[in-house]
Amino acid sequence: MSAAEEITALIPRLRRYARALTGDRSFADDLVQDTLERAWGRIYLWRPGSDLRAWLFTIMHNLHVNQARTRRSEDSIDLRNEPMEFAARPSQEERLEIRDLTMALRRLPDEQREVLLLVGLEEMSYQEAAKVLAVPLGTVMSRLSRGRERLRALMSEGGNAPQLRVVK
């Protein structure tokens, strides 16, 4: 597979991660688009045979960090007021739980959410996540631990059911 085909094959995963990370469809696709443009612009920096997925996620992580910084400095406009969109079409009962999960996810600090998603959605090893985020392994572990615990606390405070049900 050529690098171009490999990149194209990874687009759905970049979109899934970006959507979960930003909580907004158009932000997410902008982030994916920026990531792809940067990747194409620097494809000569990528060594064939090295992990393309890790490289793309690293680019996306860096862009997201920069954009988040810009957004914080523009606090006069909040473009993120809209409720988080979700991809699933849930039943009435499940909708409450999904809302709990999406709300709880948004309340996590970016750095914890990133680790949770790289490990939980992308199924990266802790070493891979550490590489993508350019932090030590211990930092990944502590963010994962704090993130999961925080999410658990947020979920149980959010509804009557203390435990999250599996959403099918």
Binding site: I11, A88, R148
Partner: peptide
């Protein structure tokens, strides 16, 4: 168990994005 369910719920919530058609502008970034 709560952590396992978090993971399952995340997958259930976001995996459907994998099957969405890719917007054309993402396929022709240049």
């Amino acid at each position: 168990r709560a952590y396992q369910k978090q993971k399952e719920a995340l997958r259930a919530l976001f995996d459907p994005i994998l099957d969405e058609p890719i917007p054309p502008e993402l396929l022709h970034p240049q």
